[in-house]
């Protein structure tokens, strides 16, 4: 088994007085797609935000690409190669597609890496190519979702944290997201996906962790999760 790219252990996080995450831990290897499954409020988003340093009160060990990032600042974490695509997309609506990409761009970390350029991204997201000079606010919901991912790729991340890409969008866009993620995986980027939509997660993920009330309740392959009806009943489905 190769060394983990991202290793989280003993992670605790708080919002004000509320304790949200309890000694949470998981690992992601290079090039792997890992799904964090769980219902709303289970702590999936908080986990991703804690890793990015966007939650002020957190304790525990977070190691990424060999560096300890448990006390690092958000922008340093991003520069190490950890990309974050938030649930509500948060694209810059006043900036054009190209300018949005510019904000995300960071120099390559090593010479061997193939860097993402707007042109290369437009091959992956053909819709964005046509809209390159349009401001973000005038893109459709699906295009905004794509732009949010593309913008993060401009930082040449080794790992992307993707927060509920299927939430609140039409099924046909979820479809397109799945195709995009499969293509993305082939470029060698590792992905942590926070999801509630099991069919979607099944299409794209290698392994899964189930989170409930801020704790990991299951870890295994996606296949094991799909096959375990009790588990699905208890934490995911009706």
């Amino acid at each position: 088994m190769s060394e983990a790219l991202l290793a989280v252990s003993g992670l605790n996080a708080y919002y004000g007085a509320a304790h949200i995450l309890f000694d949470l831990g998981f690992e992601v290897r290079a090039g792997e797609v890992v799904a964090l499954m769980g219902r709303n409020g289970a702590g999936k988003s908080t986990t991703l935000k804690s890793i990015m340093g966007l939650i002020e009160r957190r304790t525990g060990a977070i190691a990424f690409a060999g560096a300890d990032i448990s006390h690092a600042r958000t922008y340093d974490i991003a520069r190490l190669g950890l990309g974050f695509v938030p649930e509500d997309r948060r694209i810059f609506t006043d900036l054009t597609v190209l300018e949005n990409l510019e904000v995300g761009s960071q120099p390559a970390r090593d010479r061997t890496q193939q860097v993402w350029t707007p042109e290369r991204l437009f091959e992956l997201f053909p819709n964005l190519a046509e809209a390159r000079h349009r401001v973000g606010g005038r893109l459709s919901g699906g295009e905004q979702q794509m732009l949010s991912v593309a913008r993060t790729l401009m930082g040449n991340p080794l790992l992307i944290l993707l927060d509920e890409p299927s939430e609140g969008v039409a099924p046909i866009i979820v479809d397109a997201m799945a195709d995009m993620m499969i293509a993305l995986k082939q470029t060698g980027v590792a992905i942590v996906l926070s999801e509630q939509n099991l069919p979607f997660a099944e299409l794209v993920s290698d392994r899964a962790y189930v989170i409930e009330k801020g704790e990991v309740r299951f870890s295994g392959t996606m296949h094991e999760l799909s096959g375990n009806e009790d588990l699905r009943r208890a934490y995911l489905e009706v």
């Binding site: 966007l54 991003a78 006043d94 300018e99 913008r151 930082g155």
Partner: peptide, 15 residues
């Protein structure tokens, strides 16, 4: 201009 709109997101992109 990006930070004018969403400064946390700008930080999450490594700025």
């Amino acid at each position: 201009r990006a930070a004018t709109q969403d400064r946390d997101m700008v930080a999450a992109l490594g700025v």
